[in-house]
């Protein structure tokens, strides 16, 4: 290595960074500050609740998680609600993916009418609040087409999220270089073969991060179907509270359950992303 004529004494230690920088850079201090801040918030909430004269009854919460009755072990309302939420979200997400892909392909097609339909759909869905969309499906389209509240919920979530998902598909597809299209064409592939074997497998890498965000978003927005009393986590939470009046404990628990589920999801996908990054 040439040192460009600059003489520098070898083996001399670098000067230490200033004390404040070392202080805030250390892991122990960072964790300490984090704990103090979280603690302060929790303490504030606790003091506030006490000020209201709230009667904490955390000991009554576990029975809604699991019970050991005389007939044996059984799950409580919260895990059952969670399973229902996951079922609802998974079904809605799969449907949203299908609709989203179709809308994205329409938008990217050479057909003027196709992209017009796609843009119209996107603008319509994106500009209606989720709650209004739900009412529309349940109170208007439900009676007309004769579907129940569960179907209405799935359709609402699927349609609402398909608009966002179609944009993710479109961005992912557009991120694949045009050379890939040309290469696929030049060996005689049809557009559908090109999408299936060449373009979509490559766009997965671009779509994974925003798609995860979308799943998390969907799980969270699935809570809205509790307003039409579809059995799922939030609805069960409401039911428990109307029986027990433990709103603080139950809402904290429900929030924590959502948080745990979405965190697990995010961590899982970040592992997937690493795997795809290596493959490329």
């Amino acid at each position: 290595m040439s040192d460009l004529g600059i003489s520098r004494p070898k083996g001399q230690p670098l000067p230490k960074p200033p004390f404040l920088k070392r202080f805030f850079d250390s892991t122990l201090i960072s964790v300490g500050i984090y704990v103090v801040i979280v603690g302060l918030i929790a303490y504030g909430a606790y003091i506030g609740a006490q000020g209201m004269g709230y009667n904490w009854q955390w000991y009554r919460v576990p029975q809604f998680l699991y019970r050991n009755t005389e007939v044996g072990f059984e799950w409580g309302e919260i895990p059952i609600g969670l399973v229902a939420t996951i079922k609802l979200s998974v079904t809605a997400f799969i449907l949203a993916m299908v609709i989203g892909l179709l809308v994205a392909l329409l938008r990217l097609s050479d057909l003027v009418i196709g992209s017009a339909i796609a843009v119209g759909f996107l603008e319509l869905i994106r500009n209606i609040p989720l709650l209004v969309l739900l009412y529309l499906f349940y109170y208007v389209l439900g009676p007309i087409f004769g579907f129940d509240r569960y179907t209405a919920s799935i359709l609402t979530l699927a349609v609402f999220h398909s608009a966002l998902i179609s944009e993710i598909f479109r961005a992912g597809i557009n991120a694949v270089p045009t050379g890939q299209w040309e290469a696929a064409k030049s060996i005689g592939m049809s557009p559908s073969q090109t999408y299936r074997y060449i373009i979509l497998p490559q766009s997965v890498r671009f779509m994974l991060p925003p798609m995860t965000g979308e799943v998390v978003h969907l799980i969270k927005s699935s809570a809205i179907v509790s307003v039409i009393a579809v059995a799922e986590l939030t609805t069960f939470g409401r039911n428990i509270i109307s029986d027990t009046y433990m709103s603080f404990e139950i809402w904290f628990t429900i929030a924590l359950v959502y948080l745990v589920v979405t965190l697990i999801l995010s961590i899982g996908v970040s592992h997937l992303e690493k795997k795809y990054a290596v493959d490329q």
Binding site: G179, A183, G188, I198
Partner: peptide, 20 residues
């Protein structure tokens, strides 16, 4: 055109291999 493309091979400046 698709039958034709099977008869006519094309080699590109940027290779355009399928990276996946």
């Amino acid at each position: 055109i698709r039958e034709l493309r099977q008869e006519v091979g094309m080699v590109f400046q940027q290779f355009n291999l399928f990276p996946h």
